[in-house]
Structures are given as C-alpha cells and as structure tokens.
Computed example of a mutant assay.
Amino acid sequence: MPLPSFNLTGRRALITGSSQGIGRDLAHTLASAGAEVIINGRNPEKLARVVDEFAAENLTVRACAFDVADEAAVIAGAKEVGAIDILINNAGIHRRGPLADMPLADWQAVLDSNLTGPFLVARAFVSGMIERGSGKIINICSIMSNLARPTTGNYAASKGGLAMLTKAMTAEWAQHNIQINGIAPGYLDTPLNAPLVNDPKFSDWVKSRTPSRRWGKPEDLAGAAIFFAAPASDYVNGQILTIDGGMLAVV
C-alpha cells in the first residue's frame, strides 16, 4: 500500500497519448497506485488492446479515443470522460527536418499536437477542477524545452512553449487549488525515438553526453508522475522537473 500522501485510490486520471510508449507506462503507474485511469489515443483498436492487457493485471482502466489537436473532438471526449482529478498531457508527435526546408504542414502539425493539444485538453477539463477546488495537471515537456539540435526546431519550439504554458496555467489556476507541473524527459528509448535508438552513431552520442551513460526508459518517469499526481505535491506548482540522467547538468 502506498504512503497516504502518494496514494491515488479514488482519483480519476486521463492520460493523453497513452496507447504506447511514455503514456502507456504512465497509465500503468497511476493505475498501480490506485487511480481509475482513462487512456487516450487516436486508434481505438490500440487502446482496446491496452485496456485488455491492464485488465489482465486487475488494473482499473478504460479508453476514450480522440485527437487532442481537434477542438470539437476534445470537447466531445471531455463530455464522454466526465470529471477527472488528474490530467497528464502526454500526446505528441515529431517531424524532423531542417528549418530552412521545413514544410509549413510539418511545423503546424507538431505545434498543433504538442502545444495546442495540451491547451485544448486542459481547457476542456479545468472548469470542473475549478468548481471542485482541486486538480492536478501534468504536462510532459522535454529536454528540448531547454535545448535544441539541428532538425528539431518545430519540436523544440512546441516543448519550450509547453513549459511556459505550464507556468501560465499556474499563474491563472493555482488559486483554485490546482497544481500544474511539468516533467521534462531526456532521451528515452520509446517508439517515437526508435530511429535514433537504432542509429549507432547517435545512440553513442546520447550515452557519452549523458552522465548516467544510458538511454532513459519510460519507467524512469514513474516516481515523478506519482509525486505530481498525489497529495504529496499539493504545494508544488509551476515546476518543470527534468529527468535526463544528468544531461543538463554538464557541458
């Protein structure tokens, strides 16, 4: 049984982009801590498979499919989901390319999913949190909220914006006993990063640049997610916790 300040029993949580990768791991983490979890993605079949896998472990989870970048779909999804205590804005995409040649469509798609999406989803649920006088919002930012590499311009812009959106949400909503914080992962071995993980030159660079000398894993975010979702963080607001194996600590 978790310590009372870290116990999520009776809490309802929505995690966007949770049919795979980081989101799926976060869903498993919160469900294991006692939360009723609603997973989300655009593919109902993938979500159904995750629901079945979690049910086999006696974890309480259900699915709601919608595109976080589609305003009408988000509003409809929020009505289907109902009131929640915890929101994790995790859904995101990456379309790499040099800025000088980047099609506007690739720029816009990343901003729509990674920055506008969290705004739309948070806006759809925050009124209920304000009415109840409590809530937790966790935005999954990135090491790219602080750094950039060639071909990551759209992604870095979106994640830098999400870090500032976290602070803006805090400025407006903390007065209602809502805690809004961000988790900024470093380089994690996820499906989104598979091309980089499988590139020996890049993978060696990540390990040499990271003091921990390894790629991160989605489960490395579990402790931070529980902390930000639980009563333990009731006076923590507007913070971005970087979990990167020490990469930002060194030159």
Rank of each mutant, 00 (worst) to 15 (best):
N193K: 11
L87P: 09
K136S: 12
P218K: 07
I22E: 11
A109V: 01
S18L: 11
R42L: 05
G128A: 10
T16Q: 10
R123I: 01
L192D: 02
W215L: 03
R62D: 11
S127R: 14
L241M: 14
G21S: 10
V74C: 05
Q175W: 00
G17M: 02
A78V: 03
P44E: 00
S233A: 11
F125W: 04
P4V: 04
C64T: 09
D112C: 05
E57K: 15
L14D: 06
E71D: 13
L87D: 04
G41F: 04
E53K: 10
I93D: 06
T29Q: 02
K46W: 00
G223K: 09
V250Y: 03
D67L: 08
T9E: 13
S145Q: 09
P231F: 06
M247I: 12
R95C: 06
Q20K: 15
A174Y: 00
V251W: 01
I137E: 05
N40T: 03
A225P: 04
I39M: 03
L115C: 05
K201E: 15
A157W: 02
V61N: 07
L241H: 11
A69T: 01
G17L: 02
N193D: 03
P218D: 03
E71F: 08
N58K: 15
L115I: 01
T166K: 07
R132F: 05
I39T: 04
G135K: 14
R42V: 02
L111C: 09
L87I: 04
R132W: 10
A194V: 05
K201W: 00
L165N: 11
D25P: 01
P118T: 13
Q175L: 07
G161R: 11
N40K: 06
S233P: 07
L104Q: 10
R132I: 01
A109P: 04
S142K: 10
I138D: 08
G186C: 04
